[in-house]
Simulated scan of single mutants.
Amino acid sequence: MGAEPFIVLEIGTSKICAIAAKLNQNNSFDVIGVSNEPACGIRKGEIINLDLVSESLKHVIQNLEECAGISIGSVDITFSGAHIQSTPRQGVIQILDVEHGVTQDDMNLAVNAAMAGRLPEDRIILQPIVQQYKVDNQNGVSNPKKMLGSMLTVDLLMLHAKANSIFNINTTLENLGIDVTDYHFNAMSSAYSVVTAEQKKCGVLVIDIGAGTTDFVVYVDQRVVTTGVLAVGGDHVTNDIVSAFTISQKSAEQLKCQSGSALTDSSTQLEKISVPAGMGFRACSIPLSDLNIVINARMDELFRMIQDELGKDLLLSLGAGVVLTGGGAKLKNVTRCAERIMGLPCSVGTPFSISGLTSAYQSPEFASPIGMLYYSSQNVPGNEGLIRKFFKWVKAL
């Protein structure tokens, strides 16, 4: 029989993707099934129509079960949403046994102390992200186990989300007979599959450009420095094209993906693109230079927003530059656009190769679910996520 497969599920604005994979003897993955379908009933990462989302999830799960020849009872979820936020917290405790040094119990107590501060009633904790420990006056400790001292301090980022958004996902999957084991933030999931430990040490910014949102995470000295979500994504570029040229959503998406560029180019001023009639819209001809002006304006805005969020000093500490993932990373000249705004080298992050995964999925828009596999495999067996514990507590009331 072998070990149970890892089942991960990405719930995005434009697509829902599920992957089943097993760890082999070389501690790498063998993918046994993939299911991917367009998402319905989701906007900017949040459910707006439970019935449509339920139907989409049902199809994805059933297809994966048939493809992999398994029965699915639980999943790990990677997702985004403009409602996700991070708050810095600090916890300080006295070390329990000063003669033998810091233990795992001490570390857990410090994290619990950092998370003790109350959140607004409509928020729920997704996960604590430990940034560093401090033993007495020694800063920058990544693993304080067995270190001697009297006081242990932990600095962490607490990721939290709108409670109703999480309830909606949980309830929808529970109605399909699926238990949610854990949740993870999209940008961090993507980072697991596209950047190396060396890049995280040197300092790297990972930007996941989705359809409804753009997520980012910054690593310096192999620790998470900050995260964020912007309510701007590829769909906004498409909507800009619709408004500028009065064409259908479908035509605008095709123009963006097939002909558009994140940079303007004077050499395209005389080139025009024919848009056929359809869906109630008349046929028309659009100058390619005008199309690229519209796309460039939105992409410039997006990268400037991230630049403003991070600040000049933090950007200067990113020795490994910027890595773009998500469907938006496939836009022509998007890396050059990011480089021009941020003044840093930029590349497109392609997921690390995994056995059994076809070339169609070795693409930046699948970085998040593939990265979630790595994250799930590194979690301690039997270590329940905070949200799962919370829902068990609610059911027991």
Rank of each mutant, 00 (worst) to 15 (best):
M1D: 12
E10T: 10
E10R: 13
S14C: 11
S14G: 14
A18I: 09
A20I: 09
N24F: 06
N26S: 10
D30A: 15
C40D: 13
G41S: 12
I48Q: 01
N49H: 10
N49Q: 08
N49G: 04
D51Q: 13
V53Y: 06
S54P: 04
K58R: 15
H59N: 15
I61H: 01
Q62W: 06
L64H: 10
I70M: 10
G73L: 01
S80Y: 04
G81S: 05
H83Y: 03
S86V: 04
T87I: 14
Q90V: 14
Q90C: 12
V92C: 08
L96A: 14
V102E: 08
V102F: 09
A113I: 00
A116I: 01
L119S: 11
D122N: 15
D122K: 13
R123T: 09
I125F: 03
Q127M: 05
V130A: 03
Q132D: 05
Y133S: 09
K134N: 09
S142L: 13
N143R: 10
P144Q: 02
K145Q: 12
K146T: 11
L156S: 01
L156I: 02
L159D: 00
H160Y: 04
A163F: 08
S165F: 08
I169Y: 13
L173V: 04
G177I: 09
I178R: 03
I178K: 07
N186W: 00
M188P: 00
S189R: 02
S189H: 08
S190Y: 11
A191T: 07
V194H: 14
V195G: 09
E198Q: 15
K201L: 08
K201C: 02
L205N: 07
D208N: 15
T213E: 04
V220Y: 14
D221V: 02
V229R: 07
A231H: 04
G233W: 02
D235I: 06
H236P: 05
I241W: 08
S248Y: 01
E253F: 00
Q254V: 04
L255D: 11
A262V: 04
T268Y: 13
Q269P: 00
S274V: 05
V275K: 12
P276Y: 07
F281L: 07
R282Y: 07
A283C: 02
C284F: 01
C284L: 10
C284Q: 12
I286C: 09
L288H: 08
L291Q: 09
I293K: 14
I293D: 06
N296Q: 14
E301P: 11
L302Q: 10
M305F: 12
K312I: 14
L314S: 14
L316Q: 15
L318T: 08
G319D: 11
A320P: 06
V322S: 05
G326T: 01
L331H: 07
V334G: 11
C337N: 15
A338K: 06
E339L: 02
G349S: 11
G356W: 06
Y361K: 11
S363E: 11
F366A: 03
L373K: 01
Y374T: 05
G382I: 02
G385Y: 05
K389L: 12
